[in-house]
Design a protein around this nucleic acid. Structure first.
Lengths: 141, 141
DNA sequence: CGGTATCCTTGCCGATACTG
DNA sequence: CAGTATCGGCAAGGATACCG
């Protein structure tokens, strides 16, 4: 076929999008802090450094796998620093780097928005649910 | 067995976490705006209202399914309003509500952080990769 | 104590086809 | 033009077991 199909055009667009995402800083940041374990971990480290086991207990419901995976990612990105003391038993401490700490104001801004506007969102959801019910009733009649 | 196993305790913690998430506004907000299509859609609607097809073309790589799904979610949460004109052909316009527009400063803050600090993150990644290589070389030797 | 390795399920999302 | 319905692949992540 001489011209591209719609599917081919979409696929092309998607590849371009993926390439774009790969170098878009904002997208990467969003992908990073949006991870539920990432945000909880940063919050858990906000006040003071913590040991691995402490974090595991402080962050409700996290598995060892996800905790380790999250900490490794944060360390790799320079947001968290890892310190090992060669004692027996081994002690491993994690703390926010200055770069990691610079994210705290952003998290706070998100928290502020959520706390001041989330009731509006919930209200919208209730109204939407009611409207949907009414529409369903109409459809039946 | 009289006492809980470690697995049972973790499962319990996870259920508590899920319950917590279900009513934690910040978590819900983060889950919402972290979605890649959500942030792109809000950005696409920032300047002016748009029609469905326009959005599909403006947002690179989005499928009909994800676009519809995203718009429905945003509408449900009161962040986006949907207006249908009964013309032929049908026209459907989407625009940010004031609530949705109030998210724009947050998105901007994220963008600002990303643009000013992302090079540090990338630098940290490069150093980490180098350190990992050195460690691997040590292990071989 | 602080992890790593493995299996296996779940649910997200893209592709495709069809409708008012 | 603006959707809805259905299927299937694939990767994220939870459970479990084991190691230095």
């Amino acid at each position: 076929m001489a011209t591209q199909t719609a599917a081919a055009r979409r696929a092309e667009a998607r590849r371009k999008y993926n390439a774009y995402v790969a170098e878009c800083p904002t997208r990467q940041l969003l992908d990073t802090i949006s991870d539920k374990w990432v945000s909880l971990t940063i919050a858990a480290l906000a006040a003071s450094p913590r040991r691995y086991g402490e974090l595991g207990r402080a962050i409700a419901g996290v598995t060892q796998k996800m905790l380790t995976q999250t900490l490794r990612a944060l360390e790799r990105d320079g947001l968290v620093a890892r310190t090992v003391t060669a004692d027996v038993p081994v002690q491993v401490e994690y703390r926010l780097t200055p770069l990691g700490a610079s994210l705290l104001p952003l998290m706070e801004a998100l928290t502020d928005w959520a706390e001041s506007h989330m009731d509006e969102v919930l209200q919208a959801r209730r109204e939407h649910a009611t409207a949907a019910e009414a529409a369903a009733a109409d459809a039946l009649a």
